[in-house]
Amino acid sequence: MMRHIATLGRATLDIVSSIGRAGLFLFQSIFCLPSREGFHLWIRQMHFVGVMSGAIVLVSGLFIGMVLALQGFTILVSFGADEALGQMVALSLVRELAPVVAALLFAGRAGSALTAEIGLMKATEQLTSMEMIGVDPLRRIVAPRLWAGFVSLPILTVMFGVVGIWGGYLVGVDWLGVYQGSYWSNMQDSVDFVGDVLNGMIKSLVFGLVVTWIAVFQGYDLIPTSEGISRATTRTVVYASLAVLGLDFVLTALMFGDLG
């Protein structure tokens, strides 16, 4: 019995100290003065983290929009409400699916790569040697990646949403024969810029920060062996996905909870 309590206590202490380390880590790396060199590093990471995730986000966005229209149509048409298809596709994408699914894809595509990359740098002593040269790896390695993730996920989310709405149009209007005037005008009437688009963007900003933070911290904090790297990569995807889904609920409750 005592042993179980001790184990529980130790696990709690481990979790608390790891959250503390992660917090300090974020604090020390995110407030870096922008420099010309830092800008170049950031651009390079924007390419690696953002641009390279573009393809998977676009393709997934297209398919999700198409599936939404297909599923939505079969339900709406039985109420004679197929005119509202545009509204349904746009609202589900803008409020929920674009920020959440883009963040999940981002965690799998870019997050795992960030963890593995930083982890391998740690395992091959590149981070230590950088410290010994007198360069803070938090500034040079971590900060550009953190900012790249923070900036690129909202952009990816917008791309996801736009392509998704287009996918919905392809299926709903071109294939299933919904009147295209009502597809667009219902969408225009019901989607509110502040209430829906801006809130969706806030979600994706939060997700961008959390996912990249988890990814770079797991890479920086891992045990530098091949097993450690594989575990940390897995942890990145699992923690980031859970964090995105959990935070999504909290944010949705805060943003849309009082709508009725």
Partner: peptide, 23 residues
């Protein structure tokens, strides 16, 4: 402090077992 330590390290060089070149 972290800053002074990094300053001091500029006066040091270290050769790592693995070389630790930036890949």
């Amino acid at each position: 402090s972290r800053r002074s330590l990094f300053k001091l390290r500029r006066r040091m060089g270290m050769l790592f077992q693995s070389g630790a070149l930036f890949s």
